[in-house]
Design a protein around this nucleic acid. Structure first.
Length: 549
DNA sequence: CACCCTTTGAAGGAA
DNA sequence: TTCCTTCAAAGGGTG
């Protein structure tokens, strides 16, 4: 049990050297890797400081509003918010991606530019007692994934001390959960009952279940206090007074959690707040998991499974039928969290490139670290299923334009046919030590995350084939691309089903990458990198665009 | 402006 | 059971 008691905030931030646990020899390697990583990270601290002060705020502020004006602004805002918090939290310094655990949430300066009426002093750091998301939920045993580890077990493996200068990366997932901030017994209204959608048994939702991603419908929770009600008394009252076990709105998202919207609207700078779109809460900020049809058009409105459909759904309603997004998986959560950091560390903004890095780093995470995300993802899925019992991932099929998958029928297995026919860009290496996703030796050669992830979290899928055999799918590219590869590694020798797939690596894509971006290289990685870079040294430094077809 | 690219993981359907 | 496909986020790039 991740220290529910938490001992209050006693050890909060007290232990910088919080070492998780080394249960396997591999840990030692990890440690060395981390040390290396931190050393690299130090290099960018100064730059990050500047960025955090200048670019992060203004730059992002400018960028956000452009993309999706209003309806998705909440997501943007939320990320923006969390990122802002994080940046302030660690002063723009990126520390090793160790996220010691959830039990405590440290709320940073609340009087930041995005918080209009924060009441805490800029220097005030509020340590909040939190509960481990996995902590058992009374009466929810039936919902629990049998594969999931016992919370206690897990907690034993996860550090429970939150670094004083490091907000948990999943803060955005946590911050909006109410009750987290009330060490004591929460008011009765904060303990809404939830009818277990499967068992029908009333249960008290664990705070951690009140995911910010999925607003709880009135019927689901009865009433919900403002997630940050303790920060904003004037708006802290719960908006819903529906009795426990009351009606369940067919589309919980439609009955958006007002508390969330008020949070956003009141916490973000004016420019973040957009006029209320039709049919939405006055704030116009929908739940992250919901995408208004205005944004994501729903051709037929059949995305909602029968069970989700309202008994009396006016056709108009169908048009408004929200797009219920899939719950984010572990990697998505990780990506969402780390993207900002990666972007900040490199000048490149291309998501595709960033994602490559993130994928690389993901594989470099320790099993414990990954386990956190797996666990969180599991909780998200669980919560999602509770909120949208009838929802199916299938419902979203066809909602977005068909991705061009050229699984060419004619492509032979040895073509290691890849899905994408074209590769976006090739970047030549710089002398800088860069983390080339394409050259992800680690991923290709050792794929550390694979088994570990599964081990770390029972909820974690037994490493999928793709992960096992294709740690990085970018290693497999259309044959045409090969001509443009400056470098390639021998395929991973393994008995995996896809071992025949040649492992290709591209030149380091990002000349702008900072060494700190590298995932902690193991000795093996370093050796590989060494040779890798040696090979690249003769390569001209240029940007090769769009090779093949 | 819509889609592509890129990553991993989850889910569901097809074989 | 295995394989395949789609989507989830994100934002620059592309046609």
């Amino acid at each position: 049990m991740p220290q529910l008691n938490g001992g209050g905030g006693d050890d909060l931030g007290a232990n910088d050297e919080m070492i998780s646990f080394k249960d396997e020899g591999e840990q030692e390697e990890k440690i060395s890797e981390n040390v290396s990583a931190e050393r690299d990270l130090d290099d960018v601290k100064s730059s990050l400081v500047n960025e955090s002060e200048s670019s992060s705020d203004s730059e992002q502020a400018e960028r956000r509003p452009q993309t999706r004006p209003d309806l998705e602004s909440y997501e943007k805002a939320r990320d923006y918010f969390s990122e802002a918090l994080r940046r302030q939290q660690d002063g723009g310094f990126f520390k090793s991606p160790h996220y010691p655990g959830y039990p405590f949430l440290m709320i940073p300066d609340l009087t930041n530019p995005y918080l209009s009426n924060g009441s805490l002093s800029p220097s005030a750091r509020t340590y909040l007692q939190m509960k481990w998301p996995l902590l058992d939920v009374p009466g929810s045993a039936g919902l629990k994934d049998s594969r999931s580890p016992t919370p206690g077990h897990l907690s034993n493996k996860v550090p429970v001390v939150q670094h004083a200068h490091h907000v948990h990366p999943l803060t955005p997932l946590i911050t909006y959960s109410n009750e987290h901030f009330s060490p004591g017994t929460p008011p009765s209204h904060l303990s809404p009952e939830i009818l277990d959608p499967k068992t029908g048994i009333p249960r008290t939702p664990h705070p951690s279940e009140l995911s910010p991603y999925y607003p709880l419908s009135p019927g689901a929770v009865g009433s919900i206090a403002h997630p940050l009600g303790w920060l904003m008394p004037q708006q802290g009252q719960h908006m819903y007074s529906i009795p426990p076990g009351g009606f369940r709105h067919p589309y919980p998202a439609l009955a958006m959690n007002a508390s969330m919207s008020s949070l956003v609207s009141s916490r973000f700078s004016p420019h973040m707040v957009t006029p209320p779109p039709h049919g939405l809460h006055q704030t116009g900020i929908p739940h992250p998991a919901i995408v208004s049809p205005a944004i994501k058009q729903e051709p037929s409105g059949d995305n909602i499974s029968p069970s989700m459909k309202s008994p009396v759904p006016p056709k108009k309603e169908e048009d408004k039928r929200p797009h219920i997004k899939k719950p984010l998986n572990a990697f998505m959560l990780y990506m969402k969290e780390m993207r900002a950091k990666v972007v900040a560390e490199c000048t490149l903004k291309e998501s595709a490139a960033i994602n490559q890095i993130l994928g690389r780093r993901w594989h470099s995470l320790s099993r414990e670290e990954q386990a956190k995300y797996y666990e969180l993802a599991r909780k998200e899925r669980q919560l999602h299923s509770q909120l949208y019992p009838g929802w199916s991932a299938r419902d979203n099929y066809g909602k977005r334009k068909k991705r061009k998958r050229d699984n060419k029928p004619d492509s032979k297995p040895e073509d290691f046919s890849i899905r994408s026919k074209k590769q976006c860009v090739q970047y030549l290496p710089s002398e800088k030590m860069c983390d080339s996703p394409a050259s992800s030796h680690g991923s290709m050669l050792d794929s550390p995350a694979t088994p570990s992830a599964a081990l770390a979290s029972p909820a974690a899928p037994a490493a999928t084939h793709s992960e096992q055999a294709q740690p990085l799918s970018l290693t497999t590219k259309p044959e045409g691309r090969m001509h443009h590869h400056h470098f390639s590694l021998a395929g991973k020798a393994s008995g995996s089903t896809q071992s025949t797939t040649p492992i290709l690596t591209r030149p380091i894509p990002f000349t702008s990458l900072h060494p700190s971006m590298l995932s902690p290289p193991s000795p093996f990685h370093q050796a590989a990198l060494h040779s890798h870079h040696a090979l690249f040294q003769s390569q001209p430094l240029s940007l090769v665009t769009k090779p093949t077809e």
